[in-house]
Design a protein around this nucleic acid. Structure first.
Length: 586
DNA sequence: CCACCAGAGCTC
DNA sequence: AGCTCTGGTGGC
């Protein structure tokens, strides 16, 4: 039996009943002090144990609660992404199914298609792609349609022709009761078409066709562990169902490009793209903050011109708050979080017009101190000015036409709108004449090997997104203009991927290999870290250890690593907590 | 005197 | 990660 949770091993229980429940059926069993719901595993022949075997308290299902196909998907997730069946089940199942809610599945039969087939469909204009998807839905069959954003899914669903809508379902973005109702409705065959965000990839229907729009968007990666992309899961489902997989978007992901080498169908018009050297930035400083703000004369001129033409301007900067860091001018020490030790940034307090500190990692809020907590120095200065500092500065030039983006409400008059990549959806509804990336080098540094792709795709999207694309200009400020990948913007993503993949291949990075991130449980002994490193190295697996932060392992396949980690994830090790394993594969 | 809560303890 | 047990608090 598998227990939903961080554990990898199966547990053995005694059954006092004439008939064995099917693989995947749920049972109630005593675990630790309490009673929990588990899933029946494939029978192991004569599992000998030296300890007393506890009884199964209740059998909840006669048949598999998930169905064979989704059960197989969970099994594949557990093996491929080093999370074990327990966490895979938590990801695949609706929460109420895990709690033991009763239901009787009646999954519809399906005439299997002959073979798996992958169709790339890349076009920068939403309407062109969406029209194609609508045609696919009208053609009949069971179709799953995934979108990278909830809003896009809802909008697409809203505009479906009545005939399709009647047999379609919009998958809820929230869990709980709504998700459970959707699950039951789909499982009982009351919908032929499922439209939704990433979570809809677990809709319990044997689809004939699976469409993934915007397939390279990292928004498909689930927030909770295991951090897997719904796109990978869609691909796996299509493969095991022998369904048709349609991959659409602005541009392909590394994996898809590598497999089918599609050609970029469009280029940026020559006037539509401007590359600016950030080294020529104006020497403007915000009060109390050290460091230049990335404003060049080229940016200012074009912004003014776009506003005069009655159009909106987007300024992208991936730094929230007023300053990214605060340091003491006497001792040089930076203020750090008392809870997790990360650096604190300065941002506007939610009450009154004051500033407060906020931890970039754990989100802890604190009031801004008057003196340095280390040396009692009285001059605290900000480093790396962010959007709020930019706002007060830009207001000097463009007065009330500058807006700091908030999710709600949109400016009516032509404005300079400041924000992070979250501004991109504004292109759908506003006439954007200029999209400016103030400091492209600083964008998307989270996953190092994916940083260039992130940056490229966002800039690419900022040109094409929305109906006002005609005549829009994209301006990119960088410290390295004219070198390497920045030049591929004009030529399109085929050129970008060719260069990028050549480099990743030489380093055996994804999609050519796996990169595994191991975050150790907080509060563990330091020796535990050494033990794990030692264990891996003895098994011939080299580990990158920076001393703090996660451990990294690069591997061609995850099999060997899985074998080494498995004993660490047995239920008896629960007391010391478990490392969080994240597999980067594309 | 017991309802309620936070923290400890446990895991085939 | 849940689940239950425990022991302290507080409401009346």
């Amino acid at each position: 039996m598998f227990l939903p949770g961080p554990w990898w091993n199966t547990l053995t229980y005694a059954l006092n009943a004439p008939r064995l429940p099917a693989e995947g059926a749920r049972v109630k069993v005593p675990v630790g002090r309490g009673v929990r719901v588990g899933f029946v595993a494939r029978q192991k022949i004569g599992a000998p144990t030296d300890r007393e075997i506890k009884p199964i308290l209740e059998v909840l299902d006669e048949n598999s609660a998930l169905g064979d196909e989704l059960w197989g998907l969970a099994d594949w997730i557990g093996r491929t992404f080093l999370c074990g069946m327990g966490e895979a089940l938590q990801l695949v199942c609706p929460t109420l199914l895990l709690r033991g809610e009763t239901f009787s599945p009646c999954l519809p039969d399906r005439q299997p298609r002959k073979s798996f087939q992958e169709i790339p469909f890349y076009h920068p204009l939403d309407e062109t792609r969406f029209e194609y998807y609508r045609e696919r839905l009208l053609a009949g069959g069971r179709v799953l349609l995934l979108f990278s954003e909830v809003e896009t899914a809802a909008a697409f669903f809203g505009k479906l022709p009545i005939v399709v809508k009647e047999e379609a379902l919009l998958w809820p973005s929230s869990g709980g009761k709504k998700q459970w109702e959707a699950w039951k409705r789909v499982a009982s065959g009351k919908a032929r078409v499922v439209v939704g965000p990433a979570g809809a990839v677990f809709a319990p229907l044997p689809f004939d066709e699976i469409v993934v729009d915007d397939e390279s968007n990292p928004a498909y990666i689930f927030q909770k562990t295991p951090k897997i992309s719904a796109r990978s899961l869609a691909g796996r489902r299509a493969f095991s169902l022998r369904a048709r997989l349609i991959l659409g978007g602005w541009m392909p992901s590394a994996k898809t490009y590598l497999r089918s080498r599609p050609e970029c169908p469009v280029r940026l018009p020559s006037g539509g793209f401007v590359l600016v050297d950030l080294k020529s930035a104006l020497k403007v400083e915000a009060r109390g903050v050290n460091g230049k703000l990335p404003l060049t004369s080229s940016l200012m001129d074009r912004t003014r011109a776009a506003l005069d033409a009655g159009r909106h301007v987007l300024w992208f900067l991936d730094r929230k708050g007023y300053a990214g860091e605060v340091y003491c001018s006497d001792c040089g020490e930076s203020l750090s979080c008392s809870r997790c030790g990360s650096i604190m940034r300065v941002e506007a307090a939610r009450v009154r017009e004051t500033m407060e500190l906020r931890c970039v990692r754990c989100g802890l809020r604190k009031t801004l101190p008057f003196q340095c907590p280390t040396c009692r120095g009285t001059l605290l200065l900000g480093k790396r000015p962010g959007l709020e500092a930019l706002f007060s500065l830009a207001s000097r030039y463009f007065a009330e036409r500058v807006v700091l983006f908030e999710a709600k409400g949109k400016p009516v008059k032509p404005s300079v709108i400041l924000g992070t990549r979250g501004l991109l959806p504004l292109c759908d509804t506003l006439d954007v004449g200029l999209a400016a990336w103030l400091d492209l080098d600083a964008e998307a540094r989270k996953v190092e090997y994916g940083a260039r792709f992130q940056a490229f795709s966002m800039v690419w999207e900022s040109y094409w997104r929305g109906i006002g694309a005609n005549g829009r200009t994209v301006l990119v400020q960088t410290r390295r203009p004219g070198f390497g990948w920045q030049n591929t913007f004009r030529l399109g993503w085929s050129h970008f991927w060719k260069g990028e993949l050549r480099e990743r291949k030489s380093l055996a990075l994804p999609p050519y290999g796996f990169l595994v991130q191991l975050d150790l449980p907080a509060g563990g002994r330091a020796s535990e870290r050494d033990d794990l490193v030692c264990l891996l190295e003895r098994a011939g697996i080299p580990v990158m250890d920076a001393g703090n932060g996660p451990l990294w392992v690069a591997a061609k396949s995850t099999d060997r690593l899985a074998a080494v980690l498995a004993p660490r994830f047995e239920i008896k090790n629960s007391r010391q907590g478990f490392p969080v394993v994240t597999v980067w594969s594309e």
